[in-house]
Write a protein that binds this DNA or RNA. Structure first.
Lengths: 353, 353
DNA sequence: TTGAAAGCGCTAACAC
DNA sequence: GTGTTAGCGCTTTCAA
C-alpha cells in the first residue's frame, strides 16, 4: 500500500504538504499542488481511513443500526439514507441486529436479550468512531435503545425515541388511515370493519384513531365490535374477515397488505367477490398488493422520504455540533411523514341497500 | 472514550499487559487477568477499531459491495453473509452501488459509468483495510469488477467472475429449470411455452437449456417458436402470453414470478383460467407468488445458502492467506447452489386432448 | 509474567 | 509556502 509518506518522498516534499493539498488546508503553490496531484493519480494513493480516523477522531461515517434488514421496509430506507449521506460525502455502514431472525415476532419485552444483542453493536459503533447513528426500527414503538451516557448524535428512524435528545422520523399513521377511511366513506360505505395488528402496537393504535376520526367527522357511530386485532400475518387477516363479515360490514380495512391478503383468502373461500360484494383496503403498498385480484387499494409508505429526512437530521446535528446552538427541548422532536393513497380496484361504490 | 491506557493505569499495569489479556496472547497471571477484566467491564472499555486496524493491518472486516440492496435477492443474502461472518467474529460492512437506482435496467455495457461508480468504492475498501470483499451482483452475468492489480481476496456472489482468482457462487439455473419442466411434463404437458428474460441474459440462457434438456429427455421436440424473450417485467410476461397462447401451448413457464404475474394478467383478460385451462409455473418464489390466484407453483431461490457459502469461501481464503497452499487453477471455481421447487396450485394435470 | 519503547499513517501546532 | 515534531490508541519486539 502506498502511503502519504511515499507520495511525499516521490515529490520531494514533506508529508504535511501532501496532507495539506489533499485536504485543501493551508495554501500551497500551484506548482507543487499539481505535482502532488499527479503523483497521487499515478500511484493510486488512497488515504488510510484508519490512520486518519485515529488522528482526527472524526470518520465522516454514519452508522445505521437496523433491527432487521430483511424487513420489507428496511432496504428502501437504507438505500435512501446512503444516497443522501454520500451526497454530503459521508460514508455509511450498516449493522444488522437480525431481531426477527433471532426471535421472530417476540421482539418486545425481552429487554435482556435485546440488550445482549444491541449493546455490543453500540460498543462497536463507538469503537468505529462513527460520527452519528441512525437507529432503523422494524416497526413503530417507543424504543429506548441508547442509554443516557450514549454520547453520539442519533436519530430514530421508523419508530419513536424515548429521549428528548433523539428526534424521530415516522410515518403519519393517523392521517393516512383517516384518509383511507374518508375515501371509503365517500364511496358509500358506512359499516367498515377494521382489521388491525396487535392491540398494543403503535401502528395499530394510530391507524385506529384515524379510522375513528373519519367515522366521527362523517357522523358515523364507532362500533368497537367492528375492530379485530390480529398480528399482521396473513392468517390473522383471514381470521379478522371471518370475525367481521358476519356483522354485516360492507368494507374491510386491513391495515397491512399481508393481512388484506388473508382477508382475500377468506372471501374467496366463501365466494364473496372483492370489489363487488365487499370492498377491501390495505396498507403498505407492498409489491404483493398489485398482484391481488382485484388489485388492492392501499396506501404507500414514504420509505425513501423517511430515509432522506433521517439523513438530513443526523447531518444537521453533525454540522451543529460545533455551533451547538440547539434550543433546549423537553419533548423529543417527531417528524411525521405523510403517506399517499394508491387507488386500485378493491374499493368500489357500496351497493345501495 | 476510555482507552487501553486508562484501563492499564486503573489496574496499575502496563498497556502491554492489558493488550495481552484482551487478545489472549502471552500468559498472564490469573490474578491480574481477573483484575483487568473487571475494570474493562466496569469502564465499558472497547478497543478502538481504528487504532488496532492501523497497527495490525487486519481489520477482521469483510466488505460487501452490493450492486443494489433494494433488489429483492440482496437483503436475504446480505443477512446470511452477516450472520455467518459474525459467527467467526468478522465485521461486515456494506457498500451499495445503487446501480439500478442510477441507471434502471441498463447496467451492462456502460463500462465507463460503471467504473466511475465502482472504482471509488474499490478504493474505499482498500483504504478501509478490509480483509476481503464479496461482490454481490443483482443478476447473473460475467462481471469484471476487479482489475488484475486488485490484491484483496474476493468472491463473486450471484454472478460469475472473470478471474481464476475469484470463485463464484451462483444458483443452478439449468437444473432448476430442468426440474420444473420435468414436473410439468410429468403432469401431462407436452407443449410448454417458455417466457424468458432478455435473450443475452445468463439466467435466461441457462434456464432455457434446462428446459431443452427436459424436453429432449422426454422425447419432446424443441420448438423455438415456443420461446419468447421478455425483460423480466410484468408487462413482458403479458406480452409473452399473448405471443405464445395462440400457438396452442397447454402450459407456460415464466422464468420470473413478475413475468408470471403478467401472464396471469393476460389470461384473466382473456378468460383463460389458470390451473384449469392452462398451467403456469414461475421462478424466484418472491413473496408475491403466494398471493396469486391460484397460488403460483414456482422455484425458491436459495438466497440464505448463497450467502452462507460466499461467507464460507471468503473466510477460508483469509485463513488460507498465511498457509497459501492454494493449488493453481485456471478456471474460476463456480459453486452452483440448487433451488427447490415449491409446488402450489398453478400447474395441474394437462387436459386430455 | 510483565514493561519500555517503537511505530502503524496521518494531521495539528508551530516554526521557519 | 513548507517542514518539524508530536501524538492519536494500539500491538509488537525485546529486555527485565
Amino acid at each position: 500500500m502506498v502511503t502519504l509518506k511515499d507520495v511525499a518522498e516521490k515529490c520531494g516534499v514533506s508529508a504535511t504538504t501532501v496532507s495539506n493539498v489533499i485536504n485543501g488546508k493551508a495554501k500551497t503553490s500551484e506548482q507543487t499542488r499539481k505535482r502532488i496531484m499527479k503523483v497521487i493519480k499515478e500511484t493510486g494513493y488512497k488515504p488510510n481511513v484508519m490512520a486518519k480516523g485515529l488522528r482526527v477522531k472524526k470518520s465522516r461515517t454514519i452508522a445505521i443500526i437496523a433491527e432487521d434488514i430483511a424487513q420489507f421496509t428496511s432496504p428502501p430506507i437504507i438505500e435512501s439514507i446512503m444516497a443522501n449521506c454520500e451526497k454530503e460525502d459521508y460514508r455509511v455502514i450498516v449493522h444488522n441486529l437480525r431481531l426477527y431472525d433471532r426471535w421472530k415476532d417476540t421482539w418486545y419485552g425481552q429487554e435482556e436479550e435485546y440488550h445482549s444483542v444491541l449493546d455490543p453493536v453500540l460498543g462497536d459503533v463507538v469503537a468505529e468512531q462513527v460520527d452519528g447513528v441512525i437507529y432503523l426500527a422494524g416497526h413503530a414503538r417507543i424504543i429506548k435503545a441508547f442509554g443516557d451516557d450514549f454520547m453520539l448524535p442519533a436519530v430514530m428512524c421508523y419508530a419513536y425515541s424515548n429521549s428528548p435528545k433523539i428526534p424521530s422520523v415516522v410515518i403519519d399513521d393517523e392521517k393516512s388511515a383517516y384518509e383511507m377511511v374518508q375515501y371509503m366513506i365517500r364511496m358509500g360505505h358506512n359499516s367498515i370493519g377494521f382489521v388491525g395488528g396487535r392491540r398494543e402496537n403503535i401502528h395499530t393504535a394510530q391507524r385506529l384513531s384515524g379510522y375513528q376520526r373519519a367515522m366521527f367527522e362523517n357522523g358515523l357511530l364507532f362500533d368497537p365490535k367492528l375492530v379485530y386485532y390480529g398480528d399482521w400475518s396473513r392468517e390473522s387477516g383471514y381470521q379478522g374477515a371471518k370475525a367481521l363479515i358476519p356483522q354485516g360490514v360492507t368494507a374491510l380495512f386491513g391495515i397491512s397488505d399481508q393481512m388484506s391478503g388473508g382477508i382475500y383468502d377468506y372471501l374467496e373461500e366463501n365466494n364473496i367477490i372483492v370489489g363487488k360484494d365487499l370492498s377491501v383496503a390495505g396498507f403498505d403498498n407492498e409489491s404483493i398488493s398489485s398482484f391481488f385480484r382485484p388489485q388492492l387499494t392501499t396506501t404507500e409508505l414514504p420509505l425513501g422520504e423517511i430515509g432522506r429526512l433521517s439523513a438530513k437530521l443526523i447531518l444537521e446535528k453533525l454540522e451543529d455540533a460545533e455551533g451547538e446552538n440547539r434550543p433546549e427541548v423537553q419533548e423529543p422532536e417527531v417528524i411525521k411523514v405523510p403517506c399517499t393513497m394508491v387507488i386500485r380496484k378493491s374499493v368500489t361504490e357500496a351497493n345501495i341497500k
